[in-house]
Amino acid sequence: MLHDALFIERAAVRFLVACMDGNIVGIISFGPCNDDIIKCTGDRLRYVGELGSLYVLPGYQGRGIGSALIKAMANHLAERGIDSFCLDSGFRHAQAKWLHKFGPPYTTVQNYWGPGSVHMVWYCKVADYVG
């Protein structure tokens, strides 16, 4: 995805990066929603773009970098006339962060990755995250 975003003029996925002291410390993407979101929502969010690839280096976490990336991407989406996005997670650690940041998920699928696993999908309005 990153290769296409860098080298294809009209790539479907766009990335924003956070830099500190000349180093990339975080990244976020926006593009077409993934197959898991399509499957988990019964195709209801197929045409809603997905906020994804949100990563902040461990030594930089807890400094608001992830929140700043979300806000910057929301501003970028608003400028492009995009009014909503979705995101998903099957990882408990990430789910806890997203529950705090985005509230209750749009849908939850039990046992998606196997017994005892939970996959969550959020549907969000861009306007709630611009600033």
Results as ranks from 00 to 15, higher is better:
residue 53 S to A: 10
residue 104 P to I: 03
residue 101 K to V: 10
residue 32 P to G: 11
residue 109 V to Q: 11
residue 96 A to C: 00
residue 51 L to M: 15
residue 86 C to N: 13
residue 59 G to W: 14
residue 126 V to C: 11
residue 41 T to L: 02
residue 62 G to C: 09
residue 72 A to N: 01
residue 66 G to T: 04
residue 121 V to L: 03
residue 126 V to Y: 07
residue 57 L to Y: 12
residue 51 L to A: 03
residue 108 T to C: 13
residue 65 I to P: 02
residue 34 N to F: 00
residue 83 D to G: 15
residue 106 Y to S: 13
residue 80 R to F: 00
residue 124 C to K: 11
residue 50 E to H: 13
residue 103 G to Y: 02
residue 40 C to V: 08
residue 73 M to L: 13
residue 69 L to Y: 02
residue 61 Q to G: 13
residue 29 S to M: 08
residue 76 H to E: 13
residue 55 Y to E: 04
residue 112 Y to L: 01
residue 49 G to M: 06
residue 115 P to G: 03
residue 46 R to M: 08
residue 110 Q to H: 11
residue 38 I to L: 07
residue 30 F to E: 09
residue 107 T to N: 05
residue 30 F to Q: 08
residue 108 T to I: 14
residue 90 G to C: 12
residue 110 Q to R: 14
residue 60 Y to R: 15
residue 44 R to K: 14
residue 57 L to K: 14
residue 32 P to M: 07
residue 99 L to I: 07
residue 122 W to G: 08
residue 46 R to C: 01
residue 79 E to W: 01
residue 34 N to T: 06
residue 62 G to V: 04
residue 37 I to N: 12
residue 70 I to D: 00
residue 45 L to H: 12
residue 55 Y to W: 09
residue 111 N to E: 14
residue 70 I to T: 06
residue 121 V to H: 06
residue 99 L to N: 05
residue 59 G to Q: 15
residue 54 L to V: 07
residue 71 K to A: 03
residue 91 F to T: 03
residue 39 K to E: 14
residue 113 W to I: 00
residue 108 T to R: 15
residue 42 G to P: 01
residue 30 F to C: 10
residue 77 L to A: 13
residue 63 R to Q: 11
residue 61 Q to R: 15
residue 68 A to M: 12
residue 68 A to V: 03
residue 45 L to E: 12
residue 52 G to S: 14
residue 32 P to N: 11
residue 52 G to P: 09
residue 112 Y to Q: 05
residue 125 K to P: 03
residue 78 A to F: 06
residue 121 V to D: 10
residue 44 R to C: 09
residue 65 I to H: 05
residue 44 R to E: 15
residue 115 P to K: 14
residue 58 P to S: 04
